[in-house]
Design a binder for these strands. Structure first.
Length: 846
RNA sequence: GCCCGAGUGGCGGAAUGGUAGACGCAGCGGAUUCAAAAUCCGCCGCCGCAAGGCAUGUCGGUUCGAAUCCGACCUCGGGUACCA
């Protein structure tokens, strides 16, 4: 009888449901909280979801077998732009679109047989979640964690609307195609920058996180020590007798060639008010989007204001003041001094505008002329740890490292009273205001008499109005006839609701805490949160390495501060694993105009379309609808069963790396699972014991256990292949063989739980394998009596010897020297050196 | 631009600084079959008759020994604060 996954999988899913196997319970077992980043309900599940949730399921089922009380929940990151885009494009309401997608995706996810406690499911757009998130907002506001200030947004001057970065294509609005401008709006901010030092320092304790993520976060927070000082101005407008500057390279101060202001600097704005030339330039600087990428890669523009400032080390030395588009008001003081000899960007700027490029230092031993010649060709930017020779230094020795020179410069500035050491962080406050409909309303009202007033908690939730339209650009909340009209919670007078909604990153910054008590009347239930937090293992894409994870770390701290989480939960994720993407080949042809046309995998056979046209095959690209290289998991599950999809997603590629979906791979997975089923189905009733097979089973227990612990599911899969081959070859039968098959079922259960139940049942397992305790390897079964050592001669493998496992090094040496091949290579001479690494290798240095 | 990764047979990959290519796919050969599918067994980095040589993106370095550590570069990918 061949294996029939369709029948088997639904049967076991019903059995698990009936037994309540995955209901998370607070009991006497130690707890384990495993969480995968929850999905955005885009419409259908994709292979990336299958991969992500299968990995989490392996961990959840494995920990359950090891005796943990496991919490493994699922929910929906349900607010966001795509729902509004769908409403604009196809009509309908974002709410209906979202909940419809959730229903579809839940129906697609459940057949995967994930060990999820579905009773905890919620969507972030649920009224209840909105209510609790607004309660958190009010608590944070009261605790001083929220502020309001001005920030720049992308402005589409034709559609008269704010654009997300994603909606700016090559500097133009995606619908209007009009050049985008930067515009200032007053926005709500979480004061994450107050936590810069704390968030940076605590990274050291996150030993369960990948080093690369910790490094990325540390660089993002961007702590720097530098000097803040001021240039005295000459004939500047009233109130601007000084320009405040921050620099991380005060040692290059005598190499200064200009001062540059951000176009948004107060002095630049004051000058622009009276000088049309400066006003026009500032306008030009505001062209383009707000992304760091756009600003950093865009053309560097500058304008000489005609003003000058005095150099702090020499009052007679005057520097020109420029306005430059690459100086950001958000970082430092919004003004810099240009040191073109030792900064690529400043060098480019000085070269473009004919400004001097005086060297501050040169390579060790250079004189001033040599150093100037060196930097004339290009900026000289050695590592700060490298020793250089200062030709225009003012503090410390002539020969010193950049680090030492920076320190010395700060000491001199502080001693002489013209500057002070300042520590700055790159991390900016988290702007959460969005001029959009489909998000959590910010629970605040604007009162003519009282100003900005928090909504009172008994009026929560502030829900979105449902009678909105998306036929014109802009925020429907702004133009709704009545929604914003309300009364002031403080004075009772007429007031207007805040029409901005919250960034969807807010929703995803605390959902892990909500899962611990998803129906509580407060954001968390402290008894539940105290029990279940922290997330023991968090799993998701590397694309979230910075923003989502940093915001969540901040949010957990804010929730601790406002009493919603225990102190121990301020780092909410004990361990993090970042998995790779699922990719697929892209099939492309070009139309008459040479534009690319993409084709679905099912329309391509042997590199040709049905009409015989050859397609270009672009290997290994991220699955995306527009490239038509999406493989629908539903088709795979229908055709092969969930276990095949799960097995393939875990096979071959290491979890942290991208995996390419191939039809051949899926078929191979199905084939193997069929073979395992036959092994169980065709076990002879009688037969002998086979000690070699028992050893192979214990070897497999050890290998699979180590592989799962190390998140190397591909290696766990390989170990199971090896065990299956051993079973197939073994002459054993009867109970000894069934015992090994039961071990195999247990080892496979986290990965292919349905097939594992079948094999377990066929091999005489008691109850369900989902309830069986994880097998233990017998250490005595794992050691071999003898070991084969390769013999290298001068690092090249030339021979090998097999010796008892515990043979003494001296005896091994004697055997090696007696070896024919070694004798031949030594040619009678004594070896210069003989290295014996016990149990590993021998190297003869001739 | 800046920050962070990754690069190993025809393909996915394995390998505490210690036998490069575990395990699998594809391919080739065989068994079974009237035949095929399915299944099972064997071979399988490149060059060479062989001895041997060459091989982990490129170029250097450290080491008895480097895929692994260090430096420079190339290519691809992620992030770049309003995509999620």
């Amino acid at each position: 009888m061949p294996y029939d996954p369709a029948h088997s999988e639904s049967r076991w899913q019903q059995a698990w449901d009936a037994a309540g196997s995955f209901r998370a319970r607070r009991d006497e077992r130690p707890k384990y909280y495993v969480l995968e980043m929850f999905p955005y309900p885009s419409g259908r599940i994709h292979m990336g979801h299958v991969r992500n949730y299968t990995m989490g399921d392996v961990v959840a089922r494995y920990k359950r077998a090891q005796g943990f009380s496991v919490l493994h929940p699922m929910g929906w990151d349900a607010f966001g732009m795509p729902a509004e885009n769908a409403a604009m494009e196809q009509g309908g309401h974002p709410r209906d679109w979202t909940y419809g997608n959730i229903a579809t995706m839940r129906d697609q996810l459940r057949p995967l047989g994930l060990s999820i406690d579905w009773s905890r499911e919620f969507a972030t757009c649920d009224d209840d979640y909105v209510a609790q998130q607004q309660a958190l907002f009010l608590d944070f506001l009261e605790a001083g964690l929220i502020t309001r200030k001005s920030a720049q947004v992308n402005w589409d001057p034709v559609d008269m609307t704010v654009l997300a970065n994603e909606q700016v294509i090559d500097g133009k609005g995606w619908r209007s195609n009009a050049p985008v401008e930067r515009r200032e709006l007053t926005q709500w901010f979480f004061r994450i920058s107050d936590y810069s030092e704390e968030l940076l320092a605590a990274l050291d304790g996150l030993t369960g996180w990948p080093d690369k993520v910790r490094l990325m976060q540390a660089n993002w927070i961007g702590k720097s020590r530098g000097l803040q000082f001021r240039f005295g101005t000459v004939d500047a407008p009233a109130g601007f007798d000084r320009v405040e500057v921050y620099t991380t390279r005060p040692d290059t101060l005598r190499g200064a060639s200009f001062v540059a202001l951000s176009p948004d600097h107060p002095l630049a704005r004051t000058l622009a008010a009276t000088d049309p030339r400066i006003a026009a330039f500032a306008e030009e600087c505001r062209r383009g989007g707000t992304t760091e990428e756009a600003i950093e890669t865009g053309e560097k523009l500058g304008l000489d204001t005609g003003l000058t400032v005095r150099h702090p080390l020499d009052p007679d030395w005057q520097l020109p003041v420029w306005i430059a588009n690459f100086v950001l008001m958000e970082y430092g003081t919004g003004a810099i001094f240009g040191s073109p000899a030792h900064d690529e960007r400043d060098h480019e700027f000085a070269t473009k505008y004919g400004l001097p490029i005086p060297a501050t230092f040169g390579e060790r031993g250079m004189d001033i002329a040599a150093a100037d010649a060196l930097v004339a060709a290009g900026a000289y930017v050695p590592l700060k740890s490298e020793t250089v020779t200062y030709v225009r230094g003012f503090a410390g020795a002539a020969d010193q490292t950049g680090e030492a020179a920076v320190d010395a410069a700060i000491v001199v500035a502080e001693r002489d009273g013209w500057g002070e050491a300042v520590t700055k962080y790159r991390l900016r406050d988290w702007g959460i205001s969005r001029q959009r409909y489909w998000g959590c309303p910010i629970p605040v009202v604007h009162c003519g008499a009282c100003g900005t007033v928090p909504e009172s908690k008994q009026n929560l939730p502030v829900l979105l109005p449902l009678d909105v339209s998306f036929d014109v650009p802009g925020n429907p909340l702004d133009r709704h006839p009545s929604w914003a009209a309300t009364s002031c919670p403080r004075c009772g007078g007429p007031a207007r609701r805040e029409t901005d909604t919250m960034d969807t990153f807010v929703d995803s910054s605390w959902y892990y805490a909500r899962f611990t008590s998803p129906h509580a009347a407060t954001p968390t239930d402290r008894a539940d949160a105290d029990y279940w937090m922290n997330v023991d293992q968090y799993i998701g894409g590397i694309e979230h390495a910075i923003l989502h994870l940093l915001y969540s770390r901040f949010f957990a701290r804010a929730m601790v501060q406002t009493g919603h989480l225990p102190e121990t939960a301020k780092e909410p994720f004990d361990a993090l694993f970042t998995q790779g993407m699922v990719t697929h080949e892209i099939y492309m042809t070009r139309d008459a105009q040479g534009r690319p046309v993409y084709h679905l995998p099912e329309d391509v056979t042997d590199g040709k379309l049905a009409d015989g046209t050859a397609v270009d095959i672009i290997p290994s690209a991220k699955m995306s609808k527009s490239k038509k290289n999406v493989v629908d998991p539903v088709d795979i599950v229908t055709r092969f069963g969930a276990d095949t999809a799960r097995w393939f997603m875990l096979s071959d590629s290491p979890p942290e790396r991208d995996v390419e979906w191939t039809a051949a791979g899926a078929e191979a997975a199905a084939k193997f699972l069929g073979r395992v089923w036959r092994l169980a189905d065709e076990t002879p009733q009688d037969g002998a014991d086979d000690p070699d097979l028992t050893r192979a089973a214990h070897r497999a227990i050890a290998d699979v256990t180590r592989a799962i612990d190390g998140f190397a599911f591909n290696k766990a899969v390989a170990a199971i292949y090896t065990l299956a081959a051993a079973v197939a070859k073994s002459p054993s039968g009867g109970e000894p063989r069934r015992a090994v098959l039961r071990i195999m079922a247990q080892l496979m259960a986290p990965m292919v739980p349905h097939l594992a139940e079948e094999v377990w049942a066929k091999s005489g397992g008691q109850g369900m394998v989902v309830d069986a305790a994880w097998p233990q390897a017998d250490p005595a079964m794992l050691v071999d009596d003898s070991v084969t050592l390769p013999i290298q001669i001068n690092g090249k493998r030339r021979a090998e010897i097999t010796v008892p496992r515990d043979m003494a090094a001296a005896q091994i040496e004697a055997q090696v020297l007696a070896d024919d091949t070694v004798q031949r290579f030594l040619n009678g001479a004594a070896p210069k050196k003989l290295i014996v690494v016990p149990g590993r290798i021998v190297n003869v240095v001739a």
